[in-house]
Design a protein around this nucleic acid. Structure first.
Lengths: 212, 212
DNA sequence: CCATACAAGGGGAAATATACCCTTTTTTTA
DNA sequence: TAAAAAAAGGGTATATTTCCCCTTGTATGG
């Protein structure tokens, strides 16, 4: 029987190499590629290399992360089945990957047996949704009214607010009057249901608007 | 030849199980134990199980993390050689593990060959310090005057400051007068070279005093 | 063409945070 | 045991943030 071909894209060498051994121990699968980040992976497409049946894609990577990579794949190789694999269990990240076309989302603390099952399901049924992901999906469909969108200018403001600058300095930095900044802030406070600049900083970090 | 015995303590099942396969491929080593967190690991000591030659210890774990675990080991099984293994490359974390007795600190993006070399060195020489860790050590020895230590009460204050509470509310929460809180804040501002509460929040998150 | 929304800018007042000046009591430590 | 350091509290002044209500120009869709 032909083995199911898998490519791993993950910057943690020790993990990806080890995982290759684990997958190698499953008789149905074989690892045909190992890349350190999205950039390396998509570069391999210019050469006419063998296409994998499943791509195991890490979300947090340097150079080109999972989000960018899956977007590129959606554009250029939409037939590839991507299974996201991350330590990250926050709803935003998961939904972003799923909506960009990931066929499943696995946490790195998954049991090897579940992992194998997920690989089989993605190959056979085309997708694998764990309970956690399904939960998020249902939750999302239930109340998709209050989805929060931030304008570019607002994001810029939030980034500057995550510093020891005063609002006056932020206004200068954005070439706006302090009163306009006042407006931005009050808008955001209402929109994000927060009361203080501290809340804004916490929100920004939690939602990865700024990285510290 | 007797194989060198290794125990893995890591909450990421997929990683620890995969790593077992990788280690299994080295003829000099064998994995004799696999635990999800420090608690599970130290519980195994009450039973008279076989002691490993090297413990591979993850830093970030639920229930009982690497820091707590290595402290316990230092007290109760100081002869055990611990090699810390983490994705975390910030100086604070690394130094904390090293000063608590870790024989080395490896990042999870280490190459398998380096990993094997590290295992050999820890077994034979008793320690393995990568360039990065050595760099931090030298840097630390050069200027160990300005080491910042936070008192328990200060840490408690910082945690509460990382919220939308006002200082008055924080004072109530800590059963102190708002003026005492004032003192705490001013002390910290000077000690941490910051000027605003925002700075305090950023410091706290950067140094993992709070987790969000 | 009008209505509506929205970005930019603003006034003033109240609440909160910051800075710098202290005292008293307890605990450490030399 | 005396000096030093830490913990707790206080007063007052200023700066910053927060809140509420307002105007003007400019798109933008019906």
């Amino acid at each position: 029987m032909e083995k199911i071909k898998i490519t791993i894209v993950d910057d943690h060498l020790l993990f990806s190499q080890s995982l290759s051994f684990l997958i190698g121990s499953f008789k149905e699968f074989t690892v045909i590629g190992n890349y350190n980040n999205g950039k390396e992976f998509i570069s391999s497409f210019s050469e006419n290399t063998e296409k994998p049946d499943i791509v195991l894609l890490d979300v947090n990577m340097p150079i080109m992360d999972g989000h960018e990579t899956i977007k590129w794949l959606k554009e250029n190789n939409p037939e590839l089945k991507v299974l996201a694999l991350s330590v990250n269990d926050d709803e935003d990240t998961i939904m972003k990957m799923i909506t960009n076309g990931a066929k499943g989302y696995l946490l790195k603390d998954t049991h090897p047996n579940t992992f194998k099952e997920a690989l089989m399901e993605v190959y056979n049924k085309g997708f694998y949704y764990s309970e956690m992901v399904s939960g998020f999906l249902i939750n999302k469909l239930g109340n998709n009214e209050n989805k929060i969108t931030l304008k570019d200018r607002e994001v810029e403001f939030i980034r500057l607010a995550c510093s020891e600058k005063t609002y006056r300095e932020i206004a200068d930095g954005m070439c706006l009057s302090p009163k306009t900044i006042d407006g931005y802030r009050e808008n955001l406070f209402q929109k994000l249901e927060i009361k203080t600049r501290i809340g804004l900083v916490l929100y920004a970090i939690k939602h990865k608007i700024v990285c510290i």
